[in-house]
Design a binder for these strands. Structure first.
Lengths: 404, 404
DNA sequence: GCTATTAAGTCAATCCGCTTGACTTAATTA
DNA sequence: TAATTAAGTCAAGCGGATTGACTTAATAGC
């Protein structure tokens, strides 16, 4: 810990890194293509048949892939396709959102195996953590009933919370200031014995879209999440981008005009918080979701007016996102009922002209993502799975052993 | 080329990939830290002393690094620091900008060894290419006079042009429609025998800042380039981000209000084109740079008025960039004279509040970058160097041999 | 001034994981 | 039935990082 620690350099790699990468590449290929033979994998990954055979053998022994029936397709020896074994790995996802917390267990392919939710005290994290830990304990026990190897195959705990993180103290109680200060990750790591990772809720949404939704296999996508606040989850070069301090995509506080500090932030116009305020609903109301759904279904004039206003600004947000990121698609997701989200999407049409408005697009400029309110918990759970099994630069590097 | 070609998968890797990565890591470490001993490198890269020794020996034999005098620092055997050899590699950079083209030669550490410029016919690429090829030939011959091994050590040709690329046909002759259609890269590759890469001018600016400027060693930076148009070069996770279609950061056409198609794009207010129009100057004027410089120095009221307006919108652009990317710093660069750029930077203060406005920042929120008009050509030249020597995910993967 | 200690760097053997090329197996085509 | 084609295995080889003992050369402490 002397002057040497100031040397800045990337980590090197070795055969272990090579092997780890190749295993991940196999898993991703199977995830994206369903089932592939060893020969298919060899062609797709540029590796030799023999290398693939060895790796597949390993993965099969580890219970991550399994052979299907051989298939004959023309001349030559029939091939043996392999597919992922869903119960090869599990992860727990936790959504913490003001008055509410949800926990889910997902498997290697992103199926939800167990779910639970509970109320949360907004201002008392030390109490809340007890609720959370018992929630996690519940789904974990349920998982143990499903798979005898569940504990060994549990790769981690992913947490999703509203961002942005690390701001100067906010006086807005809906920003969960008490939770921002609480050493949540450490407490959960100690309480569960699992690796714990944190994302903001838009990032979790994007992760969910990537594993089972519209961003599956898409390398450049932006996921616009209209929840209590509003934020964007960024998938760039096939990986989640979180910025220099983990707050990339937190566009809720983006000002809507150059006029300066006095002008309106996006979240005052296009967020469920703004909708609730517009409707005079209490954000702590237990039946908020149902009430909103009913109003949207009934085409309540106040709701329709809010949709018009929000769509006006969101249309422009999509324009800016397209202009800045040049993504293959933008995905609109929401914690709101599907009716409302769909109306919002429709009200955003026609989109503003932008560089994305080109002929021969493979994907729509804007599409509706998962509207299931559990999708954030799902995305939270998908993060440890992705961290453990998706090919990524950092997975190749040698790990820094001791404490930084 | 049957159904197999539709399998989507990342490429695997092998020992060659490992070795290539480790070499690049060494080079980057030396670039960022100046001079390091083998033991330093071993600690910094997590590799063993022996592995580092072998790699350094290789690099020394290849003429990329050289040993310095041993230094004694406390107990133990004195260490032998190594540094990069500037003349270990060269690259040519080419800037194509409407009436003008510039070529430079840079070495491994980003020093400019040779430069040349020429006028270009705006609408006749087939004529223009002749000018460009002779320009390249000139600097290349000059380089041959500097280094006897120049040809062997020439890693590529980087081209920078105003973007965005691949738009529907534009009728604006300043968008260089004839050049957009011309098969420039193929022609240059054939005419020079070099590997050719293309960036837009803002990306080139960012690349220049990364190799010798304010973004040196910074992993998350956005480079705002005010040239004839305006665009942003994005450095995310230590690499240039170009988006799904290579047009990320092309914010010139971003609309400044949600009002829709009728509203003003950013480049109509904050670009040198808008300045020239405001001043009634002809963009084709040969002495544009000097005239602008003189007006800025004299604090010409029209220039000051433009600065006020542009700064008003740029201040907001920085706010949006910070909100969306959460970068460590934003760098303002410009093709304009330094006086003007500096005035613009000053007029942008105070910056709008944003998530970047936090205590304990290591870097300023906004800083002035290189204002040398040659910086784009420099960035263009730095790209092949970076591609050849910087650690990156793609450098580890096995290369797809045959033509996709 | 001698010795112990510390750190840089080398040597030689080993290990790990991909590659190579020949071979086996099992299907279709002619 | 023979030729062809493709999947997959076998066994040796190879490249590059690792390991642990060793050498070298300095300082610190007695």
């Amino acid at each position: 810990m002397n002057e040497n620690s100031s040397i800045r350099a990337k980590s090197g790699t070795n055969q272990e890194g090579t092997s780890a990468h190749n295993r991940r590449v196999m898993i991703e290929a199977l995830r994206l293509n369903g089932a592939l033979s060893r020969a298919d994998l060899a062609r797709a990954t540029q590796l030799t048949k023999q290398a693939v055979s060895n790796i597949i053998e390993d993965l099969e022994r580890d219970g991550l892939v399994v052979a299907l029936d051989t298939v004959r397709k023309g001349r030559g020896q029939p091939s043996t396709p392999y597919r992922l074994v869903p119960e090869g790995a599990f992860a727990i996802g936790l959504q913490i959102d003001r008055h509410l917390t949800r926990a889910v267990v997902v498997d290697l392919v992103g199926s939800v195996l167990s779910r639970a939710e509970a109320n949360l005290p907004l201002d008392e994290p030390s109490e809340g953590v007890k609720v959370i830990l018992s929630l996690i304990d519940g789904v974990r026990r349920e998982l143990a009933g499903i798979s005898s190897q569940s504990e060994r195959r549990l790769v981690g705990l992913g947490v999703a919370m509203p961002g942005p993180f690390g701001l100067k103290n906010s006086d807005d109680k809906w920003m969960m200031p008490a939770w921002q200060k609480f050493p949540l990750l450490e407490t959960l790591a100690a309480g569960t014995g699992l690796n714990v990772g944190l994302q903001n809720d838009a990032a979790a949404c994007a992760t969910a879209e990537r594993i089972v939704g519209a961003a599956h296999g898409v390398d450049h996508a932006v996921c616009l999440y209209v929840g209590y606040g509003i934020a964007a989850g960024l998938i760039l070069n096939g990986e989640l981008y979180t910025g220099g301090n983990g707050n990339a995509g937190e566009i809720g506080r983006a000002l809507l005009s150059p006029a300066g500090p006095g002008s309106t932030p996006l979240e005052h116009r296009a967020s469920l918080a703004s909708l609730y305020q517009h409707l005079g609903l209490d954000a702590a109301d237990e039946h908020l979701y149902e009430r909103t759904d009913a109003l949207a279904l009934a085409e309540d004039p106040k709701v329709m007016a809010w949709i018009e206003g929000a769509a006006h600004d969101l249309r422009w947000s999509v324009h800016l996102i397209e202009t800045i990121f040049d993504p293959q698609t933008v995905i609109l997701t929401s914690g709101a009922p599907e009716t409302l989200a769909r109306r919002l999407l429709e009200a955003m049409q026609p989109l503003l002209p932008s560089i994305a408005d080109r002929p021969g697009r493979a994907l729509p400029r804007l599409q509706l993502g998962i509207t299931d309110p559990w999708s954030i918990a799902l995305g939270a759970a998908a993060e440890p799975i992705s961290r453990a099994f998706d090919p990524r630069f950092s997975a190749i590097l040698k790990t820094r052993s001791s404490g930084l």
